[in-house]
Design a binder for these strands. Sequence first.
DNA 1: CGGAATCCTACGTGATACTG
DNA 2: CAGTATCACGTAGGATTCCG
Lengths: 135, 135
Amino acid sequence: MSLGHTEVTTTALFDLAESGEDCGIRDVLDRLGDKWSVQVVVELSRGVRRFRELQRALPGGISQRMLTLTVRRLERDGMVSRTVHPTVPPRVDYELTDLGRSLAHLVRTLTDWSLQHHDAILDHRARWDAAQPPE
Amino acid sequence: MSLGHTEVTTTALFDLAESGEDCGIRDVLDRLGDKWSVQVVVELSRGVRRFRELQRALPGGISQRMLTLTVRRLERDGMVSRTVHPTVPPRVDYELTDLGRSLAHLVRTLTDWSLQHHDAILDHRARWDAAQPPE
DNA sequence: CGGAATCCTACGTGATACTG
DNA sequence: CAGTATCACGTAGGATTCCG
């Protein structure tokens, strides 16, 4: 499947405000920034989910391919555990790990911030757009 | 320049864990997730910066085009103020707004979390990669 | 059911050249 | 200096098909 092993993603050195060190924030942002990871983490924070359950639960309609890629990447990073039950038909359960639950808390912080400031952002946008070249 | 007005980015409804409401988290994540915004915010959190200053300060080497796009989007969202001094040669100062400083705090939270868990993530990745089909 | 493999497209990003 | 305009490219993501 090739999830693009680490050499690719570890491009980013990043220099933080007071503590002038780089950190792995790029790895985290790459996951948070993609289209589905956050939604998957949120849904899994509600409990164990099977593959199709997860797919149907996500608003917007994720494709099988993207759901597979997303849970695989989360699993690779240790956020999600994947349990295959050798039954027929097959059954695969996905669940947040401790690390994943920690990430869920972080996501919670993000959503809280978004809720608080989203209106202000949209407001600024509207003003900025209005001030742009009438074209 | 067309920064893709709001219709495009407001695709995401998003359902949060306990509070089953959607919020503007997608707008925020789109900005946090792109390649340069976080670095720009961090650099600006250190003080006012001119265009070239900003460009030279960013590790990795951002192109003029991407720096322009990045600061424009941040300005559009109300995170950054842009001040043009009508001198020759021109001088343009960029500075975080209150909203931008609030975002900087959020970024701080993100980097802290990353610092705490990055090792664990890399660890899991190494293990996952090693466990993969030897191909 | 839970994928993998393949093909295709849109968009984010980079490189380069030009301008006031 | 601080941009804008063009082109060119890689890749995230979607649609479809096939498999155990």
